[in-house]
């Protein structure tokens, strides 16, 4: 591994750890009814967001589906504002109007989480269209689940992106399930979902989505290529969600076994990276302690901030339906 730099690796680890601990805390807050509605946790998939976003420039665009806390945090959003949004508080990223599935952080160029499966993929091509139109050398990264791949909107977007050589990177997180439906019951070419994009002439590659370094390494190459104007790219990141589809769903049950989940947990992206770091003797086990401590404090502070923040005033109800002139 060429890029084995201690601080760099610890920084990736820290970002994944922040997402992990943030999500665990969100689950706790859901159990306490501080968070309501649909809550989809990203636990198990952290390496995809962190690895991919690490290859971006701060002014590149990112957009995703509803399982969106991880991207937002990886883009640099304030965990307090994210947690406050989940709490429905006025200090949330979207002033409590969006909720877990609709985080937006414009200053950090996170253009939103969207809850209609497939519906945000055309938006991503539009962001890329706009950067190309304005001759900006920016790329747009679009995250979605393998469940979105067979949707018509995805296919229309793939075709437009390929047709107009738009600077967009489609990242399909293949976590093997869309709710309770395994990929082989949803996608005709389930052994190679990237064929959906290849059939439009989009270059595609598969990556181990549990290996943050592999994700970042592939993304660095892809980002350079897309930024240089060679058109869109499709990445299939093989990953697994360790928790249920949402808080309404247990981690295992009728559609997948406990054994299966345990098997995948052996390739926990945090454990993998830690092992790589330890194997290279770049740090000792003890060096991870301060990270745990620091991240724990950040997440605790986020909860405190969210908890102590006010709910939106009733006057906020009608604000921002329209742009007022």
């Amino acid at each position: 591994m060429a890029d084995m730099d201690r601080d760099d690796l610890l920084s990736l680890y820290r970002q994944m750890l922040l997402i992990r601990r943030f999500e665990e805390k969100s689950a706790e807050m859901y159990a306490l009814a501080k968070i309501a509605g649909f809550l989809h946790l990203y636990i198990g998939e952290e390496a995809v967001a962190v690895g991919a976003i690490a290859a971006l420039r701060p002014d590149d665009y990112a957009i995703s589906a509803y399982r969106d806390h991880g991207y937002c945090l990886a883009r640099g959003s304030d965990p307090g504002k994210v947690m406050a949004e989940l709490f429905g508080k006025a200090t949330g990223l979207c002033q409590g109007k969006g909720g877990s599935m609709h985080l937006v952080d414009l200053p950090n160029r996170f253009m939103g989480g969207y809850a209609i499966v497939g519906g945000h993929i055309p938006l991503a091509t539009g962001l890329a269209f706009a950067t190309k139109y304005q001759k900006q050398d920016l790329v747009t990264v679009c995250f979605f689940g393998e469940g979105a791949v067979p949707s018509g909107q995805a296919h229309e977007a793939f075709n437009l992106a390929a047709l107009w050589k738009l600077p967009v990177i489609f990242i399909c997180e293949n976590n093997r399930y869309g709710m309770g439906t395994p990929v082989h019951r949803a996608v005709a070419l389930y052994e190679n979902v990237a064929e959906a994009a290849r059939s439009y002439g989009i270059m595609a590659e598969r990556v181990d989505g549990m290996d943050v370094l592999a994700v970042r390494a592939l993304m660095r190459t892809v980002v350079d290529q897309v930024r240089a104007g060679h058109g869109p790219f499709f990445i299939e990141a093989m990953t697994y969600r360790f928790m249920g589809h949402s808080m309404a769903d247990p981690s295992h049950g009728h559609y997948r076994s406990k054994d299966e989940v345990e098997e995948h947990r052996k390739r926990d992206p945090l454990v993998l990276l830690k092992q790589q770091i330890l194997d290279q003797a770049l740090c000792a086990e003890a060096d991870f302690k301060p990270l745990e401590q620091e991240v724990g404090e950040i997440v605790a502070a986020a909860v405190k901030f969210a908890d102590e923040s006010p709910f939106p005033e009733p006057s906020a109800l009608h604000r921002d339906v329209m742009v007022e002139d």
């Binding site: 993929i121 055309p122 539009g126 706009a130 139109y133 909107q153 075709n159």
Partner: peptide, 26 residues
């Protein structure tokens, strides 16, 4: 043709694309 863009027959796709472009300042 950069500003007068003929599309394939994919209303969801190009309407969504235009919405995304509007979000990015067009």
């Amino acid at each position: 043709p950069q500003r007068v863009v003929d599309t394939p027959i994919t209303e969801a796709g190009f309407t969504g694309l235009a919405i995304g472009a509007a979000m990015a300042g067009l």
